[in-house]
Amino acid sequence: PPQTPIRAAMTSIQQLRGDLTSSGDQPSTHLATYFKNCTVDPTQDVMKRLETLGEAFSQRFGQAVGPHCVTLGRQRFNLGVKLYYKIMEAMLKSEEKRLSVQNFSKLLNDSTFHTSLLACALEVVMATYGESSFKTGGYNQGSGDAAERNMCFPWILDVVNLAAFDFYKVIESFIKADPTLSKDIVKHLETCENLIMERIAWRTGSPLFELLRQEHEGGTAEQVETPAS
């Protein structure tokens, strides 16, 4: 049958759900082993963070779509958690191969890493369901319904309280770690990446400025330009 936007969306959703059918909402045995191999076991912090962010996400989803949709938000979050675990495991396997180490204690106890990875997984889920789609002509300026406008990227960053610059760090590794991501989703993440690089990372309060300052003080960087430049 001919491809239509609806059929394409349904196929993407079925593919995402299908890919995650075998993924549990708990860490797999392999991932749990990575946790146990850490100098400081991150398991409890990971669970606690998911509990807190799950509540925040569901509530904000409900506010954006409607109070009756808090449960729907919880379903989206749970799907995001499955993807988060799946990608984390793939990333760690790749790092184990590259670095020949099995103790990732520092990375796995880094709250920013977990929040960035989860935010990226949730962005993929919402983009698949068309809830974070960019309109032609610029982001957050479309004529779609309120829910679409409200939940467009960088909405997720506000929900999980994450700096855009930290979200940027995870995008490429995320795409590398999941070769099954559809072209449309990769394109969506690339659009997020470009928005961060061109605008969001340069907003007041971005951690990028502190990094640039440190580089400058180290004497290795050229004169740092002002944000306006």
């Binding site: 990333m91 520092k106 990375l107 880094d110 890493f113 490429e172 590794s173 795409i175 072209k183 990769v186």
Partner: peptide
């Protein structure tokens, strides 16, 4: 299968990006 341009070098992974190497 997609046109994404991978910019990271082989020696760069998620550990380096979060300063955890």
């Amino acid at each position: 299968s997609h046109d994404y341009h991978f910019g990271l070098e082989d020696h760069e992974g998620i550990s380096e990006l979060f300063d955890c190497d």
